[in-house]
């Protein structure tokens, strides 16, 4: 049991490193891209669907707090929303089939919209002046997250199918 938890925490840490890496590359190439693209959400969604709700919640915590540490917002808000995102995504994906591409994309879109709504709500309560939707551009973030997340699964399935055909 203890080994499993330690393994999960280590894997969550490595996944967070991957998220920070993607975020840095995206921010370095075009800072404005970060308004519509949240690498942390994509990573949390992807691994939550693969590994279940407990791993999703732990990963959401690590990713969210890291996102908060790289921002001037209230520390803990992204942590809270991403913990819930990871848990919900892992929990629901264990109970309904989200393998088909369109269903997967729709599922991720709903999850991302919920995460963003929660983030706006909590930020509005904690520090109202911090809510900035960049003229509505931020509302595209869930859509981009859903497309990228479901594309990751599609690519993974495609690679799996090719390698099994090859074998």
């Amino acid at each position: 049991m203890r080994e499993t938890i330690a393994k999960d925490v280590l894997q969550a840490f490595l996944a967070t490193l991957a998220a920070v890496f993607i975020y840095s590359v995206a921010g370095g190439s075009a800072p404005a891209l970060l308004v519509v693209f949240n690498a942390f959400s994509v990573v949390v969604l992807y691994f939550s669907v693969r590994r279940g709700e407990v791993f999703g919640a732990v990963l959401g915590t690590v990713c969210g707090l890291t996102q908060d540490a790289f921002s001037l917002g209230v520390f803990g808000v992204a942590g809270l929303t991403k913990t819930l995102l990871g848990f919900w995504a892992g929990y629901i994906s264990r109970r309904i089939d989200v393998a088909p591409f369109t269903r997967n994309a729709l599922f991720m879109l709903v999850m991302s919209v919920l995460e963003m709504a929660l983030w706006v709500l909590i930020t509005a309560v904690v520090r109202p002046a911090s809510v900035n939707l960049h003229g509505g551009l931020s509302l595209l973030q869930p859509l981009v997250t859903a497309v990228l997340g479901s594309s990751l699964f599609a690519v993974e399935r495609w690679i799996g199918a090719r390698s099994s055909r090859g074998a």
């Binding site: 803990g76 848990f87 929990y91 520090r127």
Partner: peptide, 29 residues
Amino acid sequence: RRSALILAGLLAFHILLISLQVPRGAEKS
């Protein structure tokens, strides 16, 4: 209730973090 307890623990941890951060304003913990 393993999953629910872990989630409850993590949520409590975040709420505590936010509660500690809000009065500090921009000052980093």
